[in-house]
Simulated assay, not measured.
Amino acid sequence: MIRITKYWIGVASLDHVRSGVAGGFSQLCHGKEAPLKRMKPGDWLGYYSPKQALNTDEKCQRFTAIGRVKGSEIYPFAMSETFVPYRKDIDFFPDAKQVPLHAISQLEAWQKYRSSLRYGHFEIDKDFFLVLAKRMGLPMKYES
């Protein structure tokens, strides 16, 4: 059975995205397992960061990272005795350029997704992903 590649957006503050990129993992929706289960090996994930840091109001409003799901394993990671979020390994493109939301917000392709940002994780179509990937500087071809 051939599996179709899916394309996703995760929403997280820039400080959290940077931690994930540095560690090669995704942690979505405050550490919930369910969004990670939806992503399969070979899928693509782009991150949008509305804020600079979780506990501030300082805006970021940029697409800040992009990468490919490496494996199917979802694992708990104890950040403290009381907070054990779930993670999934991602192969991030380390030289991705940040793309301001206003640079793509006028695109028709984005209009159907803008209200989805509040969900923290959602699927996008390949065409919009390719626009985003190109603007973020990904040098590779994308195959389903």
Rank of each mutant, 00 (worst) to 15 (best):
I4D: 10
I4A: 11
T5H: 02
I9V: 15
I9Q: 08
G10P: 06
V11S: 02
S13R: 03
H16Q: 14
S19I: 11
A22R: 15
G23F: 01
G23A: 12
G23I: 00
C29A: 15
H30S: 10
E33T: 05
P35Q: 10
P35N: 11
P41A: 09
G46P: 04
Y47Q: 06
Y48G: 00
S49Q: 06
S49E: 01
P50R: 01
K51F: 02
Q52V: 04
A53M: 12
L54G: 03
N55I: 04
D57H: 11
K59R: 14
C60G: 00
Q61F: 00
A65V: 00
R68F: 01
V69R: 04
K70M: 03
K70A: 04
S72L: 10
A78G: 13
T82M: 05
V84N: 13
P85S: 06
Y86I: 04
Y86P: 05
D91V: 00
P94R: 06
V99P: 00
S105Q: 15
S105V: 09
L107A: 05
E108G: 14
A109Y: 02
Q111Y: 02
Y113N: 06
R118F: 03
H121W: 12
F122H: 09
F122R: 09
E123L: 09
F128W: 12
F128K: 11
F128E: 10
L132T: 09
R135T: 08
